[in-house]
């Protein structure tokens, strides 16, 4: 073929450019790299260092070894908050999983207006923990709230004053928390249910297995990874829980509904106990890492597999 003139003229080779595009890729990663190294891991180390010092209002760098940890573990409020974390964690995660899975199954049965139900179930999710806390504080108001409303209906001995009771206030956190997050669990479970091979349903119908048995013995075991994911996500939410306590109970009455995340912020920002707050933060971090490490391992194996 005869080369057209305008193409022949073009046929000269450029010299190698001095700048390679993958260098640009490296440069583009610098902000994220700095944030990761400095603001995530560097700051964790910094907090750890502070936790080894006598720091109160401002960081001072005279080291006292693990004294702050000793003080922390001798602190009654810390133990209350850790105990509360355990109670709240079990109730909140358990409630979210059970109710969320239940709702997902109900929707999965093929109902009309599925979108409407889903929208309603997930609506609390779009609201902040502060909003959630304030709403529930009002609903559970002992003089004008739910208790009074039910008594007005005629059940005069009805009691629902947990929010002002030392021994019950921690349970109110779980109620408000579940209300807010159950939609997320429902969505995750529903996504899992929709991924189930439809042939399983056909096969079980041919075999005449009742629907509840299919869910119990076949579908639920298949949803292992979804349960796992939900558990991890809800754990992460529990450990960070700060806003909800502040808005709902303020940690009270007394410190009866305090949580570690609030303990830490309180000691760092208000109580001029920087060293102990840092120690608490570090203990909190270790708890988080202990819970999420299997998940991270999973995710990274998946990420590597995607290559």
């Amino acid at each position: 073929m005869v080369e057209p003139a305008h193409l022949a003229a073009r046929r000269q080779h450029p010299d190698r450019r001095w700048w390679r595009p993958d260098w640009t890729a490296r440069v583009a990663l610098i902000p994220a790299l700095i944030i990761t190294i400095v603001c995530f891991y560097g700051f964790i180390v910094w907090t750890f260092i502070i936790s080894l010092t006598r720091s109160r209002l401002l960081p001072v760098y005279n080291f006292t070894g693990f004294d702050q940890y000793a003080r922390l573990f001798a602190n009654e409020r810390w133990w209350t908050s850790m105990q509360n974390l355990a109670i709240h964690g079990c109730l909140f995660i358990g409630g979210c999983v059970v109710i969320g899975y239940g709702l997902a199954i109900l929707i999965d049965r093929g109902v009309r207006g599925e979108g409407l139900f889903r929208t309603m179930f997930m609506m609390p999710l779009s609201m902040s923990f502060i909003v959630t806390g304030v709403i529930w504080q009002w609903v559970m108001n002992p003089t004008l709230g739910l208790q009074e409303a039910v008594r007005d209906l005629g059940w005069v001995t009805f009691e629902f004053n947990w929010i002002v009771r030392q021994d019950r206030s921690i349970y109110t956190l779980a109620i408000a928390g579940i209300w807010q997050q159950v939609g997320l669990c429902m969505a995750l479970f529903l996504a899992g249910l929709r991924n189930v091979d439809p042939n399983i349903w056909k096969a079980s119908r041919v075999d005449g297995i009742p629907v509840w048995r299919v869910y119990l013995h076949i579908i639920t075991p298949m949803m292992r990874t979804v349960f796992f994911t939900v558990f991890i996500l809800m754990s992460a939410i529990v450990m960070k829980a700060f806003d909800l306590v502040v808005a709902l109970t303020g940690g009270g009455p007394g410190f009866s509904s305090d949580l570690p995340a609030r303990f830490v912020v309180d000691h760092i920002l208000n109580r001029q106990e920087l060293g102990m707050g840092a120690a608490g933060a570090f203990v909190l971090l270790c708890t988080v890492l202990a819970v999420i490490s299997p998940y991270i391992y999973f995710e990274l194996r998946k990420a590597r597999g995607a290559h």
């Binding site: 603001c39 960070k240 700060f242 988080v288």
Partner: peptide, 22 residues
């Protein structure tokens, strides 16, 4: 991959842990 892993873990760090240095 290392940077991505570090970011992924970082997502779970409770903000309280890095609050004061920040």
């Amino acid at each position: 991959n290392l940077l991505f892993a570090a970011l992924l873990v970082g997502m779970f760090i409770p903000p309280q842990v890095t609050l004061y240095p920040l």
